[in-house]
Amino acid sequence: MFEEISKILVVDDENVNLELISAVFIDSPNIMVITARDGLEALEVLKEHTPDVIVLDIRMPRMNGIEVLNVLKSDPNTSHIPVVVLSGDEKERKNALKNGANDFIPKPFDAEELKLRVINNLQVKKYQDLIKDINEVLQKEVMKKTKELREALELAKEAEYEMVLKFGMISEFRDEETGQHIRRISYYSRLLAQLAGLPESEQNIIFYASPLHDVGKVGIPDNILRKPGPLTPEEFEIMKLHTIIGGKILTSDTRFITLHAGKIIALQHHEKWDGSGYPKGLKEQEIHPYARIVAVCDVFDAMTSDRVYRPAFTVEQTIDIMKKGKGSHFDPELLELFMENLDSFLKIKETFKD
């Protein structure tokens, strides 16, 4: 899958788990598994190796997984490395996510699920590295070129948008939404930002960042993400974690404007105007304008599209339902702008239909 060798550091105090996880990747020649038997040994390994993903057990002697996480995320040299925690305790998993973990795998673990989750995180890391490298190259080139550089910048921006779309589609492939869904969100969001009076520079930011709103779904188990019926309260609590996971995935240097805006949107697009949303229960102006805009657009597109658990609503049904959420779910001014310009949004929907 990857041309270069990808390194995975597995930290677990049980030898049988180290052997099982190493065996999972024995048929992956481009993946190297490095092991450590506790947190202190892992920190020593990190002095010689820079892994692309760390698989970290929580309960270990000498230095537990949470303590290791705190060290990793406080060090600029390791804070960018995705960490997948292993734990059989739901509270421990949530605590790990709050402390900087990017994903989790329940214990006892399923070998195939573990492999897929690690590879998903490797893909995310590769996209982040690629975007970072492109931005760094462009910053250097700005010093040297004029007309040729401007043309290169335009091409790079188009390439960045395509990469962002592919990045967003990692999760879309798993929950059976389509690439057209995230393209529609992109165009809807830019239009609503324009109608709301945001500067053109911010209209462009939300255009590029909004496709990343659900990237955190890459960390949600398939049996929940693809469930054909209603989620149980416990399953819904896990589903809600996709906002936090998305925020962790998109955490980056604030110089990378698209990723920083994507982080805000991923974290806040399920917050509600009246404070009843998640993950933090923000309300009104506490919610970033980008997230309030994407919330309106995402709900409209989701409701008017087929899902595994229900067929699409008609546009009329969707509008009636969304009107009931004015001032409770949605920013009332943004929803009004959306309704007043519905024909323009429907043209976008037709242009990028599934």
Rank of each mutant, 00 (worst) to 15 (best):
F2K: 10
F104C: 03
I348M: 05
E3R: 07
P199Q: 09
P61G: 11
K107C: 04
I26N: 12
I287E: 08
F300Y: 13
K125W: 08
S186Q: 03
S171K: 01
E177S: 12
G277P: 08
R117Y: 04
K157Q: 11
L122K: 01
V124E: 06
L198F: 11
P199E: 02
S171W: 00
Y278F: 14
F338L: 02
N102T: 11
N77S: 15
R307K: 12
L46W: 06
E333V: 09
E19V: 03
Y208H: 15
E92M: 14
G39K: 02
K91R: 14
K217Q: 12
D354E: 14
R226A: 04
V16L: 14
G277K: 01
A291Y: 00
K107S: 11
E112Y: 08
P61V: 05
F167R: 09
N77I: 12
A295G: 07
L250I: 10
K115P: 09
I287C: 07
N17T: 12
L250A: 09
E172L: 10
E154P: 02
T258S: 09
K7W: 08
I244G: 10
G219M: 01
S22Y: 00
G219A: 01
S201C: 05
N341E: 00
G325P: 07
K115A: 10
M339Y: 13
L86D: 09
K323P: 00
Y127V: 12
L155P: 00
D57W: 01
E177K: 13
L97Q: 06
L155C: 04
M163W: 00
P332D: 13
V118A: 12
T318F: 06
A111G: 03
K248W: 07
K7R: 11
K349S: 15
P211A: 07
V299Q: 06
E200L: 12
Q203K: 06
G179R: 02
Y187L: 05
Y290T: 04
V299A: 09
I206G: 07
L97P: 02
T318W: 01
I105G: 00
T254P: 14
F345R: 02
G246V: 00
D253N: 11
L155N: 08
G100I: 05
Y161G: 03
V68N: 03
K272L: 10
F345D: 00
A295Y: 04
L72V: 01
I220N: 05
A159G: 15
G100K: 09
L225D: 05
K283P: 09
V299Y: 15
V218L: 15
R150C: 10
R226F: 06
D343Q: 14
I265V: 13
P51W: 01
I54R: 01
E48T: 13
L241E: 15
K326T: 07
N204D: 15
P221A: 07
P279D: 10
R117M: 06
L97V: 01
H213F: 03
H80N: 10
V124Q: 07
Q128R: 15
K73V: 09
V118L: 04
K326W: 04
K280I: 04
Q194W: 07
I170T: 06
F25K: 04
